[in-house]
């Protein structure tokens, strides 16, 4: 019950950048829909769409949501997209410049907004789409995997919206708080800890340090040099350089917990970055999540490497 209330609150807290009328419609949605919503998709001159349980859902002006188009759906005007964009940046686009160049904006309360528009050397202009991804802090979501963690590396893999970040965050909290591990989180997109005014908004444990906004590879190097962590955690491994840094850590006695986007399990050995990571020996356990977030498969990295 308390978790449900928190998830409803999470949804409500992601609406602050929207125009008031849009906010009112979304706030009046039933709690069930709010809990199941993972994304709010806004496109210029197109209807507002929620992603609920992986499927698109329309929202009517009268505050109802349905998988079929309602009589009067909420439309997002082109000027509203720009207004939302400026609000997301808290009227300070220049402070989000580096993020915008990478196609996202770190929002308050660990939410993240993806932005699409015309890319130019200084950033993005003529914003046409915004995708607000709602962060979910669910304590206990890592219960199933935490017992499998053997102090060596762990890779949490799954398709988008399968709950990788949610599980990673809870794993960090549990390892830090219950197992007394010294952890450094590289929170490049502010989704794990959501540090605001130097204080993490999400519970990531008492023995956790956070590096926010850094490139993951740079953050890893910084953590290894300065924070003497036992575990380094970060979201979405995506570059060879990050694998190099993980190997640096491996040879310094630091283990890693990270996540990876995959479509299905076999993609782990097909994606060059994850294949190399698994072969490097830095990962001991692989956790594979399915799209709906129900099934969790825990495998030995060696077994996964043998898939070809």
């Amino acid at each position: 019950m308390e978790d449900e209330k928190k998830l409803v609150k999470n949804f409500d807290s992601a609406l602050y950048a929207l125009p008031i009328k849009m906010q009112e419609c979304l706030l009046s949605l039933p709690p069930k829909i709010k809990i199941a919503t993972s994304e709010i998709r806004l496109r210029a001159d197109k209807p507002l769409i929620l992603t609920v349980g992986g499927a698109p859902m329309w929202v009517g002006k009268e505050g109802v949501a349905d998988y079929l188009p309602p009589k009067s759906p909420i439309f997002v005007a082109a000027n509203e997209i720009n207004e939302i964009y400026i609000n997301l940046c808290n009227h300070s686009v220049y402070t989000h410049e580096d993020e915008i160049k990478q196609g996202f904006i770190m929002m308050k309360h660990a939410h993240r907004a993806g932005v699409c528009g015309t890319v130019f050397s200084g950033g993005v202009r003529d914003i046409c789409s915004i995708n607000i991804r709602i962060a979910k802090e669910i304590k206990g979501s890592a219960d199933r995997i935490i017992s499998a963690f053997d102090g060596k590396g762990m890779l949490i893999a799954g398709p988008p919206s399968s709950g990788k970040t949610t599980i990673l965050r809870d794993a960090v909290r549990q390892l830090s708080e219950n197992f007394g591990k010294r952890i450094t989180v590289i929170d490049s997109r502010g989704e794990i800890a959501a540090v605001s005014c130097a204080i993490p908004e999400n519970d990531i444990g008492v023995n956790t340090d956070v590096i926010t906004g850094a490139e993951k590879a740079d953050g890893l190097l910084c953590a290894l040099r300065t924070m003497a962590p036992q575990i380094v955690a970060f979201d979405e491994i995506s570059t060879e350089r990050e694998v190099d840094m993980i190997m640096e850590g491996l040879h310094s006695g630091v283990s890693v917990i990270t996540t990876a986007h995959i479509g299905e399990g076999r993609d782990l050995v097909k994606r060059p970055v994850t294949a190399r990571l698994l072969k490097s020996g830095a990962i001991s356990k692989v956790v594979i999540l399915n799209r709906v977030g129900g099934n969790v498969e825990i495998l030995n990295a060696k077994d996964v490497t043998s898939w070809q």
Binding site: I86, H91, V93, Y94, E97, I100, G122, G123
Partner: peptide, 10 residues
Amino acid sequence: SLGTTDIDGQ
């Protein structure tokens, strides 16, 4: 125009 562009723009 305040706050609507990147640092160079500002």
